[in-house]
Amino acid sequence: MSPATLTGVGAIALWAFLALLGRWAVPLPPLQVTALAFAVGGSLGLAIVAARGKLARLRQPPLAWAHGVGGLAGYHALYFAAIAWTPPVTANLLNYLWPLLIVLLAAPVLGMRLGPRRLAGTALGFLGCALLIGGGAAMPAGSGAGLLCAVAAAVVWATYSVTSRRMAAVPTEAVAGFCLGAAAMAGLAHLAFESWVVPGARQWLAVGLLGAGPVGAAFFLWDVGMKRGDPRLLGTLAYAAPVASTLLLVIAGEGVLDARVGLAAVLVAGGGLLAATAR
């Protein structure tokens, strides 16, 4: 495994903690969490970029800024809303439709052929998600909005990831600017649509860890891995994230790993693995 690919694996490991830290931030509103976490992550990234004397690399065309800021802010606002308004294990697994959607979007966006193995893997993933919200699933009243947010988050991240391949010339250092832009965008939306909730010690800890890890360093690591490493291997390894993330939620007491959830996790991860290992 090349050093760049190993760097991308670090992002996958950090993303396994996204759901748990997001739950720790409750009851902060989703847009407030998004703004605070990106402010932390962007500030840390900007400090590193400045220390390396590469601030000039933040000068990118408007399209790159729109893509980076819109994708990062939109996905995380939807994701934090999903795990706040829906049982977190269910929302987390539904969100991990994004690797499967990447497979489907690769055909119309990047011109890559879809074979039977990829289609079979996609079908398994959707079957796992259908199991979560279909027969036997006990959903609290008012969970519908959270379920829609989880699916929408998957669509946004898959679209962002696939279209990122067309922006390989954008340097990794620019991610620091995108994070700060996402913080500003989420902050303005928070002021317009939400009420400020004073964070407690647990919420501040969650926001700090989110900004330092899965909503900060992970994007820099992933950018390096996707642009300089082996995206096929990283895509395959990414399907371990929903299983690891779900297990962390269960261990922390934020969910129950019953037979239905366990089978859904296997189907989502297994379907993604099947699709990613197709030639």
Score class of each variant (00 low, 15 high):
6 L>Y: 12
9 V>D: 04
10 G>Y: 10
22 G>C: 11
23 R>Q: 11
24 W>H: 09
24 W>T: 06
33 V>P: 00
34 T>D: 06
36 L>H: 00
38 F>G: 09
41 G>P: 08
43 S>N: 05
46 L>K: 01
51 A>R: 15
51 A>F: 10
56 A>L: 07
58 L>Y: 02
62 P>G: 14
63 L>I: 13
64 A>N: 12
74 G>I: 13
85 W>K: 04
88 P>Y: 08
90 T>I: 15
95 N>R: 01
95 N>V: 15
96 Y>K: 01
96 Y>P: 09
101 L>M: 14
103 V>I: 15
104 L>I: 12
105 L>I: 06
105 L>W: 08
105 L>E: 03
113 R>C: 01
117 R>H: 09
118 R>C: 08
122 T>Q: 00
127 L>I: 11
132 L>R: 02
136 G>H: 03
142 G>A: 11
143 S>G: 11
144 G>W: 10
144 G>S: 06
149 C>I: 04
159 T>C: 13
159 T>G: 15
164 S>H: 07
166 R>Q: 07
168 A>D: 08
180 L>G: 11
181 G>H: 06
187 G>I: 05
188 L>S: 13
191 L>Y: 03
191 L>V: 07
197 V>H: 03
199 P>S: 11
204 W>H: 04
208 G>L: 05
217 A>V: 12
222 W>C: 07
225 G>T: 11
228 R>T: 11
232 R>C: 09
234 L>Q: 03
243 V>T: 14
244 A>G: 06
244 A>Q: 00
254 E>L: 10
255 G>E: 00
260 R>N: 07
270 G>E: 03
270 G>C: 09
273 L>W: 13
277 T>L: 13
